[in-house]
Design a protein around this nucleic acid. Sequence first.
RNA 1: GGGCAAUUAGCUCAGUUGGUUAGAGCGCACGAUUCACAUUCGUGAGGUCACUGGUUCGAAUCCAGUAUUGCCCACCA
Length: 895
Amino acid sequence: MSAHYTKMKEIPKTYSAKDHEDRIYKMWEQSGAFAPDLDPKKKPYSIMMPPPNATGTLHLGHATMLAIEDILIRFKRMQGFSALYLPGTDHAAIATQSVVEKKLQNEGMQNPRQELGRKKLLEEIRKFVDESKSTIRNQIRKMGTSCDWSRERYTFSDEMNTAVNELFRMMYEDGLIYRGGRIVNWDTKMQTTVADDELEYVEEKAPFYYFKYGPVVIGTARPETKFGDKVIVVHPKDKRYKNLIGKEFDVEWIEGKIRAKVIADECIDMDLGTGAMTITPAHSLIDFELSQKYALESPQIIDFDGKIRPEWSKACGGMDILAARKKVVEILEKKGLVDRIDENYVHNVSVNYRGKGVVEPQIMKQWFVDVNKAVIDWKKKKRSIKEVLQDTVRSKMIRIIPDRFEKIYFHWIDNLRDWCISRQIWWGHRIPVWHCTKCSNSFFSPTTVQKCKHCKAPNISQDPDTLDTWFSSQLWTFSTLGWPEKTPDLLRFTPSSVLETGYDILFFWVARMILGSTYALRKTGFPEEKSIPFKDVYLHGLIRDIHGKKMSKSRPETCIDPLDMIEKYGTDAIRLSLVIGGTPGNDMRLYEEKIAGYRNFVNKIWNGARFVMSSAEPSIKKGEDKINLKKLSRADKWILTRLNEIIEKVTDQIEDYELSDAGLTVYDFFWGEYCDWYVEMSKVTKNPAVLKHVLKTSLQLMHPFMPFVTETIYGDLCPGTMLITEDWPKPNPKWNFPSESDEMGRIMDLVSGIRVLRAESDVDATKKIHAIIFAHEDIALVLDKAEIIKRLANLGTLEIFENGEKIGKALTTFVGDIEIYLPLADLIDFEAEKKRLHKEIDDLAKYIQSLDHKLKNKKFLNNAPKEIIENERIKFTEGLKRLKKLQEQLEQVSK
RNA sequence: GGGCAAUUAGCUCAGUUGGUUAGAGCGCACGAUUCACAUUCGUGAGGUCACUGGUUCGAAUCCAGUAUUGCCCACCA
C-alpha cells in the first residue's frame, strides 16, 4: 500500500459543504481579502450592492443578485483590479414602518401612531431594525459574498442623512424641489402618499352605473364621489351634445338641485360610455387636470380615512366608500335617475404595492421634484432631469444589459411626471424644511432652528413629512463613498463599474440613481463622465418555480428558500443553479433537482482533486507545477491546448456578461474532458505536473462561480496561498499543439467506437475482449496509446497492425482510416448486425445524395462562400469513403 | 389599446454574424461496483425547431402574419 493511498483514505468520499463554508468565509474575511487593494497602479472596479431591507431575510432574488455580483467581483479581483464590493442595507421607509406597526398591533395596540407618538414609535422601529439587521448580514455571508464589510453602509445612517439633506438643499435652492397642491395617490391604509410607479392594479368586477343627469346620461363606477359634480364635459365634435355646450341649467341630483354647466374638451372619448361625463376634480387625475385647465373648483368629497365628508350628505356622511356607493344608488333610484346598470364591468383598482392598501386620488400639498426644469450643466447647456436621463443612455455613457430595456426606459421617461417625494410616515429622512406660521414663509435647514429666517419670529415648525425611500436610495452609488465630501474612495470608485439588479426595479431605482447622481455630482464639480452612477446596468430576471409561476407564500410547495438549499446542497451548488441557464432580463425556473445536479458537480470536483492529490504528491510545492515541455505526452499536449482555449473562452464570456455560458464552459471542460478522459488516461501513464497544473488552473477558473469548494481544495493543493487572491489564468502561448490535439481526438473516437460495438453486442460488459486494429497512417499514434485504448475500452488483448486482410466473423468499425475489429464470432448476432448496417447505409446514402444535389446546384456554387463549398465537398468525399467501408463491412458480415 | 419576451426531446434549457446529419442536463431504457466519485461510469431511445407565408443557392436562425403563454406601460369618466 502506497503512501498516497493512505493519504486518500483521510479525505472523505463526498464533499460536505457544511464542514468548510463557514470556516473558509471567516478565513477570507479575516485575511482582509475583501477590501480593495488601493495600490494606485491598479485600475478600479466597483460594485455597490443594492441594499436589501435591513429587516428582511434572504430570498431567491437576493441570492441571484449576490451570486452574479460576487462572480464579477471575484473575477475582477483575480484579474488584478482594485475591486470594491460595497455592502449595505436599506431602511425601507414604508415597508419597515408598516411591519413594526403591524407587530405592535398584534401585541394589542390599537393605533401605534396615536398611542406612542412620533418619537417613541421611531424608537420602536429603530430597535426593531437594530435587532433584525444582523440576520440579513449573516445571510449575505452565507452566500459567500466577498464584499468589504469595513465599508458597510445603511441608507438611514447619519452620514447618509447629511448627504440627503445636502442634495435636498441643492435641489431646493435650484427650485427643482417645490411644494404644491396637486393630485396624489393617497393610501388610506398606511395614511401616506405613494408615487405613481408604486401603484399596483387589481382587477375588480364592479357595477357600472348610468345616471340621468339633466339632459344627459353619464356613466360611472364611482357614484359615491359624485355629490359635488356640476360640470358636464363632452367632446366638441360630438353631434349629440353640440347644442348643449356652454349652456347652464338646474339638474336634480343626489342631494337636491344643482346648477350644472356643459363644457367641451378634446380629451373626451366619444365612444366610451355615453360620451358625456361629469367631473370630480379632487378624486381623479384627468378631472383634476380639466379643473386646472378651466379654473373649476375642486372640493374634497372623500376624507383621508376613505370616508364621505359629512357636509356633502346627511345620509352618507362618514360612510365608507362601498356603503356610500350603495346608498347613493338607492337615493338616485328613488328619484328615478338610474338609467341602467351594467353588472359585468371590469376595472382596475389601484393599491399600494407595499401593503396593498387601496389608493384614492386626493388633492394635497406635497413636495415634488420638477423633472422639466433645466438646471443641470450638461454638455454645454442647462438641461432638465428628463433630458439628462435620456442623454446618459442614448449617448451610451450608460449601457443597459439586455439592451431591449433601453426602449422601456425611454418610454418611461417620456411619460414621467414630477416626482412626489413626500410621505406622511415617520420612518425616513425628514424633510429639512421649516415653516413659519407668522409670515408663512418656508426655508431649508438641516438642523433644528429657533427663529424664522425671514421674520425672525419663533413661530416655526418642521415639515412633518419624510422623504420617499427612493429619494435617499438615488444617492446610493456615491453617498456610500463619502459624498458630499470628496473622499479618496469617492474619487477613485465613482462611477461604479456595473449595477446589477432585477429588471423589476429599473424605474424605481435605476432611473432615479441616474437622476440623483448626474445632478449631485455635476453640481459638485465632477465632469459628465464621472457624474453617472454606473457604466453598465446588468438586469437579471425573476426566479420562478418549475411551472414558470411566481413563487408565492400561499403555495409553499413551490417556494424555494435559498437558506434551506444552502443547508442541504451547499452554497456553491445554489450559486451555480442561479447563474447557469439564466440570461439577463429573462426569468428563470428553479427547482430542487437542478440544485442537486450542481451539487453533484461540486462533488465531482472534490473527487477529481481527491484522485489527483492521492496519485501524486498531494500538494504543489513552489515551482513544482512548472511544465517540462520536452516530457509531454500527446495526452498532456492535448489537455494543455484545451486548457488554453478554455481560459480564453471563459475570460471572454465573463467579460461579456455571459455568465451562464462561462459556467457551462468550465463545467463541460472539467467534467467532460479533464475527468472523463485526461484523468482516466492518467491511470495508465501520468504526468503529475500536468495533472496538478490543469486541476489548479481549473480551480482558478471555477472559483468565481463556486468559491467554497475551490478554495477548500486549493488550500490542500497549494498550502499557504489563498485562491481568492490568486491571479486569473492567462493562456500560455507555448502550449499550442493542434496536431497532437487532433491525434488525441482520434484516440478518443476510437475508444468510443469500441465501446459502442461492445454495447451493441451482447458481450458481457465486464468481459475483457480481444481487439485488432489496422492503424494505417496512425500506426505510431495507436501503438503509443495502446495501453490507454485497452484500459478505456476494457480490452483484454489488443493487436495493432499497420494494415491487413479484412477480418470476417467480427464486429467492426472505423475512425477515419483506422479499422477496428472485435472478433467475437460466436457471440455476434449477425442478422441484427446486418440490419443495423443496412439502416446506417440507407441513412448515409440519403445524406450523400443531398450533398451531391447541393454540389450540383449551380446557384449554390455561384453564391455560397468558398469555405462553405469546400466544406460540403469534404463532407461528400468523407461520406463516400464511409459508405464504402460500411458496404465492405456488410459483405464481411454476410459471408 | 400600446409594447416586450418566450414557444426547440417527457421536463428545464443551449444553439454565436443564416451553412452541424439540431445539442446538454434531468428523466427514461439497457449494462457496469478492479482503488477519485453510484452525488459514479458506459451505451442508447427520444425532435415536422408553435403555425402559415416570404426572402435566400441554403432558415431553428432573417422578414411578415397567426396562435398560445408570461410580463410591462397606458386607460378605464
